[in-house]
Design a binder for these strands. Structure first.
Lengths: 142, 142
DNA sequence: AAGATTTATATGTATGTACAAACAATATTA
DNA sequence: TAATATTGTTTGTACATACATATAAATCTT
């Protein structure tokens, strides 16, 4: 009964999907010793050494305070350091951080392979892009 | 650059969407004084007074421990009470709980209207059902 | 150049969700 | 019937994320 109502609610279905996929991602990234979000942040720093937290917040679609917290932790793990420049703090990877790059990339691909195997390659990729577009739509209209 | 990689990752896009929709849902359910998940649990109890936590866990796709925590809180708000029956604890709504039914239903509809207005009615509903199917697929293959 | 505004980051606190382990009740098997 | 396994719930703990507020630096205004 109610079951049917729930699967017609975007809050319900998107939360559920996110929980499932997060679990998957955590599994796949476990070998890097990082939760997926931390790994992604690191990827963003590989991509642009000296990136600011503001930029990171924009790329990762996370609130600045969240980014601060993530960096705190990556820093305490010795994977990242920051240089304060004026009011900004710029983020760089340490040697130890750089050493993780290959592993993280591998995890990334494993995750992708995993859901593609279940959903189909086309379907998986198409869904992913669609969710991105939907998010854009929902964010710009408010 | 990296931006493009990210929007090709289902973990990233599904988490982002979920965060956005959760925010929306929290806004719309604010007038009920409850977070959306609590409201949904309550709906499940309206639907079946005396439901067990196991059943709730199944319907809401949440872990049993999570359901325990949710009920604890609803109970402390005086919206719900439980009767222990053997090893199960069965959940019932209080008068105060019942009084929320209309409001919750209204929130529910407002939320739906809100994302439908942005995404289009067809598109919104279709997406929702699709996410549900995808979740099923991902859960059964592992 | 002093004061006011804006911008980037940090900090205290809260919340939803989960895991692992514990516990308690029931069912099964020897 | 005693010993064991299974099942439903609870508890301790952890984590990702966010909000509100605070701080500090930069920019703008008069």
């Amino acid at each position: 009964m109610l079951d049917n109502y729930l699967k017609e609610c975007l809050y319900f279905t998107s939360s559920r999907l996110s929980r499932i996929v997060t679990k998957m991602a955590e599994d796949e990234f476990a070998m890097s010793g990082l939760s997926p979000t931390y790994a992604y942040l690191l990827m963003a720093v590989y991509d642009k050494e000296g990136i600011s937290q503001k930029e990171l917040s924009g790329i990762l679609h996370l609130k600045p305070s969240t980014v601060t917290r993530l960096i705190e932790k990556l820093n305490s793990k010795g994977l990242v350091y920051s240089i304060v420049e004026g009011r900004m703090s710029l983020i760089y990877t340490t040697e130890k951080g750089k050493n993780l790059e290959k592993t993280i990339h591998e995890c990334w691909m494993n995750l992708r392979r995993r859901y593609r195997d279940i959903l189909g390659e086309k379907e998986g990729d198409e869904l992913t892009l669609r969710l991105d577009k939907i998010s854009d739509q929902l964010e710009n209209k408010d």
